[in-house]
């Protein structure tokens, strides 16, 4: 199957400028440092990691809201960097985004109809009746009343606003939606509704999701495959079942152990992480995780581990991944 979206060794380094009179670049924040991903049509790829690990930057790079400083982003076989601005604008119909904060994601000065139809307006659609019908259809599809099209965002609840954001993303008929912490700001009950809505829409329209989140439990629920990011790099990527059956990277193990388990008998001893995330301006040499890794050895601080396939459909960036292989299958809560 050819990938819908492919990130090939994508880098995003933000220059850090100091000095007022003679500004000069004193370093780079390596927000994303050599990330390769492939997303198949109709698939959900979860992207997890703690705050500041670069997962949202990956989402923005995938949509070319940011230009990568290295590597390529390829959508449907088209290198996004090679497109003229007008061509890129047309291609944007195929890829959309849903944001975390439903308050900031909708322009408070526009009506819901204007918001939902904007992706069509900017593509030059002017057939008013057809657009109005489309807006009503989208409202119904995301579970809102078409009568509310004339209202403004502040008249809706957080969950309803998120539905409006989803309707806007659906409007141009995309094949890929980047969900950037799309449910993180919502109450748990509303979270479940939105997750279910996203799943329904995926089945109905064959959408592919790049689902970015910091809550491994939610990401686990929605994803087919999961990629774990640490300090700008992917440390482990596998199908969901595989990742939870055989968690190979020490960082992923710590994340998995941090998922709360309701049943007392199923509780495991926590592998707590100590220390803070190092600065993305000066990442540690060798494996970026080694200063916090309970299993680190001399080699880890000298040599950066490559992301390599250890099992079919399961790649890990750890020198000693094989050591964790014989771990017994974990109970699946």
């Amino acid at each position: 199957m050819t990938a819908l979206l492919a990130l090939e060794a994508v880098e995003k380094h933000f220059p850090v400028v100091e000095g007022v009179l003679r500004p000069r670049v004193v370093g780079h924040v390596r927000a994303v440092d050599g990330v390769s991903l492939a997303l198949n049509p109709g698939e959900t790829l979860g992207l997890v990691g703690e705050s500041g690990c670069g997962k949202s930057t990956v989402g923005r790079l995938a949509l070319r809201l940011l230009a990568p400083t290295g590597g390529r982003v390829v959508l449907d076989g088209t290198d996004l960097a090679a497109l003229a601005p007008a061509e890129l604008r047309r291609l944007r119909q195929r890829m959309q985004i849903v944001f975390q904060d439903p308050m900031a994601a909708l322009n408070p000065r526009m009506t819901v109809e204007e918001i939902i139809l904007e992706p069509l307006h900017v593509q030059g659609r002017r057939d008013r009746q057809a657009l109005r019908d489309r807006a009503a259809e989208l409202m119904e599809r995301v579970g809102l009343s078409p009568e509310h099209l004339r209202r403004h965002p502040h008249e809706f609840s957080g969950g309803q606003r998120q539905r409006i954001g989803i309707a806007r993303a659906l409007a141009p008929g995309p094949r890929l939606i980047v969900c950037d912490e799309a449910v993180s700001a919502l109450d748990v009950s509303v979270q479940a509704q939105i997750v279910n809505l996203l799943a329904e829409l995926q089945r109905e329209f064959g959408l592919a999701y790049l689902f970015i989140g910091h809550d491994l439990a939610v990401v686990k629920h929605v994803s087919d495959r999961i990629a774990v990011m640490y300090l700008g790099q992917i440390v482990e990527i596998a199908t969901k079942a595989e990742l939870f059956a055989r968690t190979l990277h020490p960082y992923t193990r710590a994340l998995v152990a941090a998922i709360p388990v309701a049943h007392p008998r199923l509780r495991r001893p926590r592998a707590r992480l100590t220390g803070d995330v190092p600065s993305a301006m000066a990442p540690p040499p060798g494996c970026r995780f080694h200063p916090r890794c309970p299993h680190a050895e001399a080699r880890c601080s000298a040599e950066a581990p490559a992301l390599r396939p250890v099992l079919p459909g399961h790649a890990v960036a750890c020198h000693f991944a094989e050591r964790f292989l014989p771990s017994p299958p974990r109970p699946n809560p």
């Binding site: 944007r92 985004i97 994601a105 322009n107 904007e118 992706p119 900017v122 954001g165």
Partner: peptide
């Protein structure tokens, strides 16, 4: 920097439209 400006850009809005419809009114 607000998300709705990013959303407009993701939808393919031009700088002129973003300034006129999204930034100035706010």
């Amino acid at each position: 920097e607000l998300d709705f400006v990013q959303a407009a850009r993701a939808a393919g809005a031009t700088d002129g439209r973003i300034l006129r419809r999204h930034i100035l009114p706010n």
